[in-house]
Simulated assay, not measured.
Amino acid sequence: MTMALALPDLAAMDALGQRIAEKLAPGDVIALTGSLGTGKTTLARAIIAALGHVDEVPSPTYTIIETYDDLRIPLVHADFYRLDDPGETDELGLDDYREGAVLLAEWPDHAGGFAHEPGCLAIALEKVGDGREAVVTPGTSWQSRWP
């Protein structure tokens, strides 16, 4: 049940973030893919803000993992771009961070991918003109929550 959504501007990206945030449950994974500059971090920030975070949301490009325990649902924002091997997630303690939390994963393929997990909402972002398009593929546990 893959669906393509037009995101012509920042307001549309924020609205998608809000829509996703309203349906999140502990254990979910939002897997964000797309080339550099397609809006992965922008969408991640929109989701985190929609969950109640009011401060700046730094990109985890260098820290790899940022945690947000004070939201409606605890959330782990990870950017796996700099990983050379999926096994490095063990060294980072990713499973410990994920306990009872949502994982918001940029560059999920660098961590071995998460599409096999039932709670994965895979979102591939692409540039389309001046805007973006999101191709959304819900995992089995998202079937009743999406769209």
Rank of each mutant, 00 (worst) to 15 (best):
P60F: 05
R72V: 13
V54A: 15
G39K: 14
D70F: 06
E66W: 11
E56P: 02
A44F: 06
Y62W: 14
H77Y: 02
G37P: 01
D69A: 15
R45P: 01
I65T: 14
L51F: 12
I47G: 07
I47W: 00
G52F: 03
L71P: 13
V57F: 02
I65P: 06
R72H: 11
L36E: 08
H53D: 06
Y81Q: 10
F80K: 09
A46G: 01
P74S: 11
I73Q: 12
Y68I: 10
D69K: 15
P74W: 04
A49N: 12
D70P: 04
S35W: 06
E66P: 03
H53C: 09
T41D: 08
I73W: 04
I48C: 08
D55F: 10
F80H: 08
D70E: 15
R72K: 14
I65N: 09
S35I: 07
T67A: 15
G52N: 01
L36W: 06
P74C: 09
R45Q: 13
A46Q: 00
T38P: 04
T42S: 14
T41N: 00
K40T: 04
E66A: 13
A49G: 15
A50W: 00
I47C: 08
A50F: 02
E56A: 15
H77Q: 02
A44T: 00
V76K: 02
I64D: 10
G52S: 06
P60N: 05
I64Q: 10
P58T: 13
T61Q: 01
D69C: 08
S35R: 14
D79Q: 02
L75V: 05
D79W: 01
I64W: 02
G37D: 02
I73R: 07
L75N: 03
T67I: 13
T61F: 03
Y62H: 10
A44L: 01
G37A: 00
F80D: 10
T63A: 14
P74E: 09
L36G: 09
F80A: 11
L51I: 14
D55W: 11
P60Q: 07
T38H: 02
L75F: 04
G37L: 00
L71Y: 12
